[in-house]
Structures are given as structure tokens and as C-alpha cells.
Design a protein around this nucleic acid. Structure first.
Lengths: 232, 232
DNA sequence: CGAAAGGTTGAGTGCTGTCAACGTCCGTGG
DNA sequence: CCACGGACGTTGACAGCACTCAACCTTTCG
């Protein structure tokens, strides 16, 4: 069994609220699993049975209309928490965008453990409040921004979040690899794949970004990107 | 000083986690205030200084782009909690849509009180998780639904939430008064005022709803509304 | 090599936004 | 009481941005 002591997200995930001894107790309830790119761990509308910490990889949270239109409602990175504690249904699916490692718990056991450790609930509350702020910020993008603003905002957001997750500190990461396909970007931005592609091409032709390959992005002119994003 | 014992939201707000004695302690830190329709209590981007429970009235949470496009990111009702505890800035404005009564706390005092009462934090966590689910559900509407689906979804959602808030129990409330103007509906749905107006007119002409006056809505054909909303 | 998945580009359409005029409601003050 | 003004709402004409449909290109992998 892997030890929480050596876990790479030990000090960033909600586990950071716990002492080593408390963590041992939590560890006994959970297990570490690997899931492959494209695998879905939790399905929209299902009874909430699982929660987890992300150790490695990137996952999407998504919902769909009855006729199959999809919206990605969140993207989670290492140290993020997934699943719906303290509730009986999960409102969105959770699917791996890359191969991923999770620290998995059954919801009932997590719920009862959390009730006994207020510091753990406090960490979870802080995280949930931050996620709520993020979701509401995204509502502004979906409701009010143009396609070009959406794509630019997305690229800046992705650059920032990948920089936070990686260990290279304050590096602004002007180059990074997208963890999403064009279709997934479209599903996140409330656009079609063609519109995303056209906006990326436009930014490239304007000399604002470079696209060395289908996954890589280089931000050449950050000021112009900020302007495209409509901040300022 | 008004007593929490007789507060109309005593058993529905996060206060329900507290005993009468604990509530007295909380009560000593807070104060009850009235704010008028249109008044803004908290401004987007400001330092988070206040939190509150809604006792009476309806308020909106909103954000704007630099050039003034607005998106309403939440609508809160009696017993809901507003403000951003455990964080230094508020990401959205809070404005009264009707005259309202609030139970107000300064954030530092609320934060430190909450840290001492895990049951209170637990209630707040449950509420925040529910709000996050709701916000993510709204992202599907903003990103993927047509104008007619948005308006129909909104009307059904409003009917349901007003029924929950009012005391008439399981009554489906086929008639209700909108707490929002057409402009506010547009800002919530990511549409323009003209599109909202046209969709309402269309629903009325189709015999699905009636609009007795500018604030009232009567749902005449709930099945047709569900179909319009794209849930089926 | 061939097939499938992912991505780009082009042509045309349509939904929703923009601009504008007009209608309705309501409070205020003469 | 009535006239007036302003906020709110509706309707129409038109335009444009993003979607749809389609062809084609690139990369990957068996």
C-alpha cells in the first residue's frame, strides 16, 4: 500500500488539514487507483457513490442535454477534489482527459470521516467556495463573451493553471501543452469545434500565439492576449 | 434587538446548525438590516468585508466585463447565505432585486465564529456544494441552450424556487410574480432584452403561458414548457 | 499501407444581436 | 384630475457572428 506520507499532493490537497496520524486513518479507508484517458469514473445523474483526490492527471466535469449537446463545467488538476460529498446524486460526469492517478473513497466512508474532522471539512469548504467563484466567473464567459474573447480567456486561464500545478514556480509558462482536444475546448467554451479552430488560426496569423503542434501553444504576445480576452 | 428565536429563517438558514445558546452568541455579532430594491450591498472585486443571511427578499449576484456587459451568476432567496467567507475578495456584486431584510456579519467575526462551530461550517459546506451544482447546471444553459430553451428553463426554475420559498408546500405555483425585470432576465440568461421579450411573446401566443401583467406569469401547459426547456 | 481520429478551411444559413420606433405603466407635480 | 416624464416592455427591420454542412488535410496507430 502506498503511503500518504510520500504523496505528491500531500501538502496541497485537502489532506493537508490532517496530521500524519489522522492521515493514516483516512488512508485505511481509501485506495489509490489509475484510470486511463477517456475513462469515465462518475456518470451524470448517478447516485453519488465515490469521491476522490486527484494525484496525477487532468479530468473534466461535464453535463449534457437530453439530445447530446455537452458542456464541460470544470477541469480538475492534481490536488483537486472530485465527487459530491454530502448529497445523494452527482450532477455531472467525471472523465479522465489524460491517464490519471486518484486517491479514491466511497462517499459514505468519506462523509462520516469528514464529519469527525472539522479541519478537513474546512479545507473542503475553502476549495468549494473557490470552485464556486471560478464557475461563476465562467458563467460570464459563457453568457456574455464573444468567441475570440472566450478562446483568449481560455488560453490565459490554462497557462496560469498549468503553471500553478507544475513545480516551476513563478514561471509564466508561455509555452504549454493543452490537456484538451479541440472538441473539448469547444465543449468548455460553449462553441463549436470549427469556431475554436478558426479563432486559434486567427490568433496565430496575428502573431499573438504559435501552435507548434496540435497540443502545444506558445503565447508570443501576452499583452495582446489580455486585450483579446477583454480584460482591461 | 430582534431575537433569532423568532427569525422566519431560523430553521432553514445555516443557523439551523446551532443550538439556541450558540445562536445567541452569533446574534451578538450580527445585526439585522433592511436594504431597498436596487441597492448594492457588495461590489465585485472589493475586499470581502461582509457576509449575511437573507431573511426576506430576493437579491442577485452579478459580474461584468470591463466594457459593461453584465451576467447574473446567482439569485438568492430567504434563508440563503451571501458573501465570501474565508477569502479576501468578493468576485461578484450583490444587489437587492426587491426590498430585503438581511442578517449581517462582518467577515472576520463570522469567519472566526464559524471556525469554532463545525456544524455551522458543515451547513455552509452543504449549501456551497448545492450552489456549485446549480451554477454548473446553469453553465449548460449558457453554453449550449437556445434562447427558447433558456427562457422556458428559467420560468420552470423560477416557479420551482418560488414554490420552495413560499409556505404553500407542494403547490406547483402555476402562477407567480417574477422578481426580475426583462433586462435582469436577459442578464441571467445570457440574452438580450429583445430576445427575452420575443420568446415570452411566442410562448404566450402558443398558449403555453399567460402574462397577465408585466411581472406575473401563468404556466398553462407544463408539459409543453418542459418540452420547450429541452428536458425530455 | 490503410483507416480512424483529430484538425483546418470554405460556403452558406440562421439565430440572436443591434438599432430604432412605439406602446404601456406608474409616480409626480401642476 | 390630468399632463407629463421616465422606466419598462414590445415589435419590426436588418445585420453579423457563430453554427451547419462539407471537403480535405495531418497525425497516429495497427
Amino acid at each position: 500500500m502506498s503511503s500518504c506520507q510520500t504523496c505528491v499532493v500531500r501538502n496541497r490537497a485537502i489532506c493537508s488539514a490532517l496530521s500524519d496520524a489522522e492521515l493514516d486513518a483516512l488512508n485505511r479507508m481509501g485506495r489509490r487507483i489509475a484510470i486511463g484517458r477517456g475513462e469515465t469514473l462518475i456518470w451524470e445523474g448517478d447516485e453519488s457513490a465515490l469521491v476522490a483526490n486527484v494525484i496525477e492527471g487532468v479530468l473534466k466535469l461535464s453535463t449534457s442535454t437530453a439530445d447530446g449537446r455537452e458542456q464541460i463545467v470544470g477541469v480538475v488538476y492534481p490536488s483537486d477534489f472530485i465527487g459530491r460529498p454530502f448529497g445523494d446524486t452527482t450532477q455531472h460526469s467525471v472523465t479522465a482527459l489524460s491517464d490519471a492517478q486518484l486517491c479514491l473513497f466511497t462517499r459514505p466512508s468519506f462523509d462520516s470521516f469528514a464529519r469527525e474532522y472539522p479541519q478537513l471539512q474546512h479545507k473542503l469548504l475553502e476549495r468549494t467556495l473557490t470552485e464556486l467563484d471560478r464557475a461563476r466567473g465562467w458563467m460570464l464567459l459563457l453568457g456574455r463573451k464573444s468567441a475570440s474573447e472566450r478562446v483568449a480567456t481560455f488560453l490565459l486561464d490554462m497557462a496560469r493553471r498549468l503553471a500553478e500545478t507544475s513545480c516551476s514556480g513563478a514561471d509564466l509558462h508561455e509555452r504549454f501543452d493543452l490537456p484538451l482536444t479541440r472538441q473539448q475546448m469547444a465543449d468548455l467554451l460553449g462553441l463549436t469545434i470549427e469556431t475554436v479552430s478558426r479563432q486559434l488560426t486567427r490568433l496565430r496569423q496575428a502573431g499573438i500565439i504559435d501552435l507548434p503542434d496540435r497540443r502545444a501553444v506558445v503565447i508570443l504576445d501576452r499583452a495582446a492576449m489580455e486585450a483579446e480576452a477583454g480584460n482591461g
